[in-house]
Design a protein around this nucleic acid. Structure first.
Length: 426
RNA sequence: GGAAGGGUGGCCGAGUGGUUUAAGGCACACGCCUGGAACGCGUGCAUACGUGAAAGCGUAUCGAGGGUUCGAAUCCCUCCUCUUCCGCCA
């Protein structure tokens, strides 16, 4: 949610920011509603001030026992009363129009975000590790999983539909092991506090993080009107909704392991085979709540926390700074982590870390009390996956596959796998 | 699902139609006191919007939204939510 005052102060800057996102200028239209709103408010508030003064006089007249004066003053209130009640309705209407207009506008990119139309404009900032280098043609994860007899898309389709999977045995355990491993790393070394959060949330929560009102079709909705979370970001970020936090308690660093549900509308035909793009997947999410001064640095830190998982697992990856055309709705800057998938012979997104500035905080009314004790300011929010469990599993299967079709378990995971070193066909 | 009782500032908590302009306390900030602290004393301390160069002024906000009234934290309606009890239940 954008601050209409900031737009009023610098409409050109706002439109320039929109242009970087490939959007037409909107400031003129917004400021027209804003002017109408302020003009109306002035008239309404004048009327309310007169009413309040008269009410006070009536109260004093009653107290003094002057019924005649009180009745005369009451009679004079008639027309003002009418104006006020219709005026309040008009004010609500204007405010709703302004809010609706603002709610659909994406966040403005930071200055050091590269311009670009789509993912081809993203900039690689670093690479870690090396591809495994097989002396045979690397198989894709679904071939490996199905050959092992532990990954079953057909049965999943029978009971649920496309884009679901059933796993069993050591693969089911690998999913659990990865989640435990990631959580331990983020809560231990990286200092995030583990949370257990709701998977069903209300309209306000999904609005707060920016999925509503524009992206309802990407979500699953329950018959009682709630939403299945598309990421734990929704639940975790909304934990600070309508709160005022002491600056000394910042930053808040929170993590949660949850299932995520995405309708994948508009993704028809993309990644239809395998586990890359599912309606249901699990993810260890990280959310940070910071002061404005610290949010940019926190983005670097958070990205490093996500990277630490891939490094511990020995997976080759690269870090991209997303360009203006590829960033999510609420983001001011995003780093994507792309892991190397030998089976696909390509880097694929496995994590995404974003700083949202006060964009979500304004929608949620999440503020902090600065250390100097004066007033309150909006917090800054950041979110990042640390990491997507299913895609990490894909990466392990493809990077740790052996010529005979078995899969070696990376050392860091073995304690979580009960000491299992190799997954083989039953 | 049924019944009853609640929701007031960062926190606790008073307030049942008109100087409430939301008491009081805690926490916090600043000052005095002190060798330095604690204690004590004093001052300050919600947010949003509008207006103004600023000080200030105005309006709204006591879970949310409607309503009654000249005037609502207070009365009425709807909803949300919490607590307790009953029922059901992993």
């Amino acid at each position: 949610m954008h601050d209409i005052k900031a737009i009023r102060d610098n409409p050109e800057g706002f439109d320039t920011g929109l242009a970087r996102r490939g959007l037409a200028p909107l400031s003129t239209e917004l400021l027209k509603i804003d002017a109408e709103r302020r003009d109306h408010m002035q008239k309404l508030q004048d009327a309310q001030a007169r009413r309040n003064a008269a009410s006070k006089d009536i109260g004093e007249a009653m107290k003094a026992g002057d019924k005649g004066l009180a009745e005369r003053l009451k009679a004079e209130m008639g027309s003002i009363k009418e104006f006020i009640s219709s005026g309040e309705a008009v004010e609500r209407d204007i405010n709703q129009r302004l809010e609706a207009a603002l709610a659909g506008i994406p966040n403005i990119p930071l200055d050091d975000v590269p311009d670009g139309k789509d993912e081809s404009g993203n900039v690689e900032v670093r690479r870690w590790g090396k591809p495994p280098g097989f002396n045979y043609e690397a198989r894709q994860h679904f071939d490996i999983g199905e050959w092992l007899g532990l990954m079953d898309f057909e049965t999943a389709a029978k009971i649920s539909g496309a884009r679901f999977v059933v796993m069993k045995g050591q693969l089911a355990r690998l999913e659990r092991a990865l989640a435990q491993f990631m959580l331990d790393l983020q809560t231990g070394t990286n200092g995030y506090t583990e949370h257990y959060v709701p998977y069903l949330v209300n309209d306000a929560a999904v609005y707060g993080t920016g999925q509503l009102p524009k992206f309802a079709e990407d979500l699953f909705k329950t018959t009682d009107g709630r939403w299945l979370i598309p990421t734990a970001e929704v639940s975790l970020t909304n934990l600070v909704r309508e709160r005022i936090i002491d600056e000394k308690d910042l930053p808040l660093r929170m993590t949660a392991y949850t299932p995520c549900f995405r309708a994948e509308a508009g993704a028809a035909g993309r990644d239809t085979r395998g586990m890359i793009r599912q309606h249901q997947f699990s993810k260890v999410e990280m959310v940070s709540i910071t002061t404005p001064e610290n949010s940019r640095g926190e983005l670097e830190r958070m990205t490093g926390c996500a990277e630490s998982v891939l490094q511990a697992l020995g997976l080759h990856y690269r870090v991209l700074r997303l360009c203006t055309g590829d960033m999510g709705f609420g983001s001011r800057m995003t780093y994507d982590l792309e892991v190397w998938l030998p089976g696909q012979n390509a880097f694929r997104e496995i994590s995404s870390c974003s700083v949202c500035g006060d964009f979500q905080a304004r929608r949620m009314d999440a503020r902090y009390k600065p250390a100097d004790g004066k007033g309150t300011r909006y917090v800054h929010t950041l979110n990042g996956s640390g990491l997507a469990v299913g895609r990490t599993m894909v990466a392990i299967l493809e990077n740790y596959q052996n010529a005979d079709g078995s899969v070696t378990i990376p050392e860091a995971l073995r304690p979580y796998m009960g000491g299992v070193e190799l997954i083989t066909r039953a």
